[in-house]
């Protein structure tokens, strides 16, 4: 029995892998060829052909969007069931969460367009978290040389001080602003472009690996 189950699982994995790779290949081909009549020259009907080839990618990507939206609903449902279970174990914060959820839904259903909860709860909480992050970064910045007293630590502190000082609108700090401008234009600009190139290359490599079956994050 267990052998049969194992064989069934193996078949299921192979099938899911096949479906995943096939869908990926169809989507990639559809994106490459679709909506690009220039690939087919000036032949009559090339536009229709390109549109037809673009259709699979459109349909599949729309399905993905629907699945993602559905996963949010499932996530909410799972969150609620989890905390209902915790509630039975006497977890106080689960009760708070469930009550807050119910109250928020009631509020938005009965008071359409009222964003008071967002203003009174969400914005202050997230702003406070951002402020705490700022304080933590400040504290960390003041201790860098205590933990890394080398050229890189010194460079880090120097750049941080230059960028911060240059962001202050004080006329006496004009030379520092020139340094900041150079930093932002050359190293930071180069980094930003390098990130774009790196992301593009990484996306291509990941896509190819997935299509070749080397990256099996799809349970294939």
């Amino acid at each position: 029995m267990s052998n049969r189950t194992g064989r069934g699982q193996g078949f299921g994995i192979a099938l899911s892998a096949f479906v995943a790779f096939a869908v990926g290949a169809v989507t990639a081909l559809s994106l490459l060829l679709g909506d690009n009549p220039a690939l087919f020259g000036d032949q009559p009907g090339s536009a229709q052909l390109a549109g037809l080839l673009a259709l699979p990618a459109d349909v599949l990507l729309r399905l993905v969007t629907i699945v993602v939206a559905l996963s949010i609903v499932i996530g909410i449902a799972n969150l609620l069931t989890t905390h209902v279970g915790r509630l039975s174990r006497g977890k106080f914060y689960s009760a708070v969460l469930l009550a807050s959820f119910g109250f928020t839904v009631y509020w938005y259903v009965t008071r359409r367009g009222d964003t008071s909860l967002l203003e009174a709860v969400q914005v202050p909480i997230e702003s406070a978290l951002a402020a705490l992050l700022c304080l933590s970064l400040l504290h960390g910045g003041s201790r860098v040389l205590g933990k890394r007293a080398d050229i890189w630590g010194l460079l880090f502190v120097a750049v941080a001080v230059i960028v911060l000082l240059a962001s202050t609108p004080i006329a006496e700090l004009a030379p520092v602003q020139a340094w900041r401008d150079w930093l932002m234009r050359v190293p930071v600009g180069a980094g930003a472009r390098a990130m774009l190139i790196g992301i593009a290359l990484g996306t291509v490599v990941t896509g190819v690996r997935a299509l070749l079956g080397q990256d099996r994050s799809v349970r294939g």
Binding site: L138, G141, G146
Partner: peptide
Amino acid sequence: TLAAVLVIVFGNTIY
């Protein structure tokens, strides 16, 4: 920002 610079410079100098 000036206070942050002061804290960073002072703290790192001490360390």
